[in-house]
Simulated scan of single mutants.
Amino acid sequence: MEINSPGAAQEGGATARRLAVVFNPTKAVDEALFTSISKAAARQGGWEPPFFLPTVAADAGRAATQQALRLGADMVIVSGGDGTVRAVGTSLQGSGVPCAIIPSGTGNLLARNLGIPLDHDRALEVAFRERPRRIDLAKLVLDHDEENAITFTGMAGIGFDAAMMRDTDEGLKRVVGSVAYVVAFARHIGMRPRPVRMRLSGQPEVRRRAVLMMVGNTGQLQGGVWLFPGAKPDDGQLDVLITAPTHLGKWAKLLSVLLRRSPDPAVEYWSGSRVVFELDEPIACEVDGDIEGSGTHFEFSVMPGAMLVVAPAPGVAPDGYGAHTWGR
């Protein structure tokens, strides 16, 4: 889709605000959605006709977001999956320009955690009715490569989680959605535990044998499952999980623990503003569902209030959205 030329100032001399829409054309290609966004902006008043910026295969949204900023966008609507949302949200860091989310992916985890409806029309209501609010971002430095630090919005996984995502067939995913992950799960169910050393916010080193390590800025997965029941995306903390299920029975127990949200020795939790994992052998890592390679040294830290996003206030149920309270 071509970029619309931003319109002139409003009648009466007031300057209209500029709206950019960054979208993933493999996720959001519904012309009706683009029409809805344009109509919503017109109904609100004070907005120029939006300009639409597609992402490309080699860039999940950073270049499109930078273009939106050059064009003077006052708000950026992002329509795509978690990878597109991450690219846009992190690229807006420090700009003072908020993003609004129209969920169009498979997981839509940040939208779920912020109480943003998955229905496009209702998500648009949030975009134009709610106020921008600050949430934390998380940063990963992989194998001491500070120059190429990775910023993310939701969760990162080391080990089983990353291997499963790496080996999920994208063609199958397009056809059957989340069921494709079940196939990949079966391939890795016998993954052996690895020795891991963890240091958390200046606390003494912890040594474990683990199959899966998770770090969360948010807490909720698909299906209403809370991986980190107390997690909040604006608390200045990262939540950490370590577990070592080695066969189907132990994975079933892990799922039961998560569904019950009750303490169990099978799952260990920590929290802090910084966490470092060290392993003896390279292991796969993913952030917000995107594979970021393998490594032996993983340093995570929180970036408090670094992202400005339009979302319902936690614990408040705006008309038509439904109640949402973090961590409950």
Rank of each mutant, 00 (worst) to 15 (best):
M198C: 13
D239F: 07
G171Q: 14
L212A: 06
P233R: 05
D235H: 11
Q220M: 12
T218W: 02
S201N: 11
G230C: 03
V182Q: 01
R192Y: 00
V240W: 05
L172C: 04
W251N: 00
G202C: 02
Q220K: 09
L221R: 04
R207W: 04
L255T: 13
Q222H: 08
R197S: 13
F185E: 01
M191C: 00
A252P: 00
K232S: 15
G230Q: 15
G216Q: 01
V206Y: 02
V225K: 11
M198G: 02
L200T: 09
D234M: 02
E205F: 00
Y181H: 06
A210G: 09
G177N: 12
K250M: 08
M213C: 13
A186C: 12
I189P: 01
S256R: 12
G190F: 09
D239E: 12
Q222Y: 03
M191Y: 03
R174A: 09
P204W: 01
G171F: 09
W251L: 01
G236L: 09
A163E: 14
G202N: 02
Q203R: 13
D234Y: 04
P204R: 10
M213D: 01
L238R: 11
F185H: 02
M165H: 09
R209A: 15
R199K: 10
L255D: 03
V206K: 03
P195F: 02
R166I: 09
S256N: 12
L241V: 12
V225G: 11
V179W: 09
T243Q: 01
V196A: 15
L200I: 15
R197H: 08
R194A: 11
K232G: 14
P245S: 09
E170L: 14
A184K: 02
V206I: 15
Q203L: 10
K250W: 07
H247Q: 13
A252W: 11
Q222M: 14
M191T: 13
D234V: 01
A210E: 09
R174Q: 13
P193E: 12
R174E: 13
M191F: 08
S178G: 00
K232D: 06
S178D: 00
Q222E: 15
Y181A: 00
R194M: 12
D235P: 06
L255K: 04
D239G: 11
H247T: 03
M165Y: 07
P195C: 05
L238P: 07
K250D: 13
L172H: 10
T246M: 08
A162L: 08
T168N: 04
P195W: 03
V183S: 05
I189D: 05
R199H: 05
M198I: 14
L221P: 06
R166N: 15
A180L: 03
R197T: 12
M214A: 15
G230V: 05
M214D: 08
L248W: 13
M214C: 13
L212N: 13
K232T: 11
D235M: 05
M191H: 03
L200W: 06
G230H: 15
R174G: 06
R187A: 11
G219E: 05
D239P: 05
V176C: 05
G223H: 04
R207M: 10
V183R: 10
N217K: 02
P204Q: 04
M198P: 04
G230S: 12
F185D: 04
F228M: 05
I242G: 00
V240Y: 03
D235C: 12
L254Q: 07
P204A: 05
M213A: 14
G230K: 14
W251R: 03
P245V: 07
R207T: 14
D169H: 09
G177R: 02
P193S: 13
